[in-house]
Design a binder for these strands. Structure first.
Lengths: 233, 233
DNA sequence: GTTTTCTCACTTGTAGGATGACTCCATAAG
DNA sequence: CTTATGGAGTCATCCTACAAGTGAGAAAAC
């Protein structure tokens, strides 16, 4: 084969994505704030040097992310509330590898407390659902699967049992950000089994309402998942 | 004034929204499932009787909701299952229902851990900044002010010292959400002074690197702020 | 002077054409 | 069998044209 020059893989960024990114930055930096009106589609197009279509596509993306609101005949307005910015922020951070450690740390902060709340508040039906998830995970792992889908389900169901929608939403965001990383990490079968067993321990503590055990088990579970190397100071 | 008939507010549905809705339904019903390829933009446009622009805008909205993935030269593909749609739907609901109580609780989950991290990692310059903030707060309160601005600064500076951008931004979000509520609550002078003194205690623990004291002091501080009635089970 | 109506400029909503870029696959050339 | 080539299908992006909605100020009516 002929000599192939090492080609840089060009990450094709579509025009509309670039616009979304820029406008999001302007909102985050405070240059645009709630209630502000964006320049018209034509003007934005001229300013960015792109067509009106691309501006519109960017607007649709921002709109479905609840960052802006478009009213025919009037214009497009910033409606970003702090709440709606949370997912955006986490998505950004996850793009930069430097933030991954922060995400794991945030998870270690959040999830043990979520486990404690679940231990305090979980209803019988929720406990049964958690049981069912772990049964599915066991089958999946024994069949050679990764069980990662069930893993996510377990953690989210636990958050649901904690009865705090804000925390639940937050964890969902966090797990979504970490998801591709976790899928990438090829874990050994023994790890998967151990992970499943720690799930059982956590659920056991939750069932008995033992908050401190739930916290402790969750912490060791997260350290297992995260590092591989558990570092129990 | 003349009799105003109760006018029904007409919800104008844009074409692209209708398309998003229809495709979402097809995913939920299982007619479209993961991996499936959507018809081409032209064909979709003809089938719905709309222009390609509208189809593209719908695609952008679906894409930013992680329901589909578009690859140039190939087509647009479903990347979601009915299961994965559930969180999307419930997120909408929680935007309205998510109560203030949940926000306070989330704060009690987050901020003690942030204080612990700060106790572990705070640099000298950051400690001096925290000092300065508390001096300003003291003056402000003694002059009859609320000191709420300095309160926010203190908590955010502490989060900065924790050296985790994600947690820092998260707390910023949370405090902004709670801000108007806190401003509304007319607190007594004695409460303001006590709040300031608890700040001093927290900072003291942070300076000495006593993580557990930092956590404990932060918890009691938050309970003070939140309820007025401390309930130390 | 006050109120109502109308006009017009501006903005978003939508359709559809033209062209470029990319992917895949069948077919031809070696 | 391997490698090029080319064409069909598709998305990416630009463009024009017009419909539809909004708001403000001019014009008209009172």
């Amino acid at each position: 084969m002929a000599i192939e020059p090492q080609l840089q893989v060009v990450r094709r960024v579509r025009v509309y994505e670039e616009i979304v990114s820029q406008i999001t930055s302007l909102i985050l930096s405070g240059d645009f704030t709630i209630g502000d009106k964006l320049p018209s589609e034509r003007e934005l197009g001229e300013r960015f040097g792109v067509g009106r279509n691309s501006v519109r596509e960017a607007t649709r993306a921002l709109e479905s992310a609840h960052l802006v609101e478009t009213r025919q005949g009037e214009g497009t307005f910033i409606i970003a509330t702090p709440d709606s910015l949370v997912p955006v922020l986490s998505a950004r951070i996850s793009e930069e590898a430097s933030g991954v450690h922060h995400l794991f740390e945030a998870r270690r902060v959040l999830e043990p407390q979520i486990a404690a709340l679940a231990a305090e508040r979980a209803a019988a039906a929720e406990l049964r659902e958690l049981d069912r998830i772990l049964v599915r995970q066991r089958k999946e792992v024994e069949a050679g699967g990764s069980g990662i889908e069930e893993d996510t389900q377990f953690h989210m169901a636990l958050a649901g049992a904690a009865k705090n929608e804000f925390l639940e939403k937050l964890l969902g965001t966090l797990l979504a950000s970490l998801r591709e990383l976790r899928e990438r990490s090829v874990r050994r079968m023994s790890d998967r089994i151990r992970s499943h067993e720690t799930h059982l321990k956590i659920l056991d503590a939750v069932k008995k309402g033992q908050e401190k055990d739930a916290v402790a088990n969750m912490i060791s579970h997260l350290l297992e998942i995260e590092g591989g190397e558990v570092n129990p100071e």
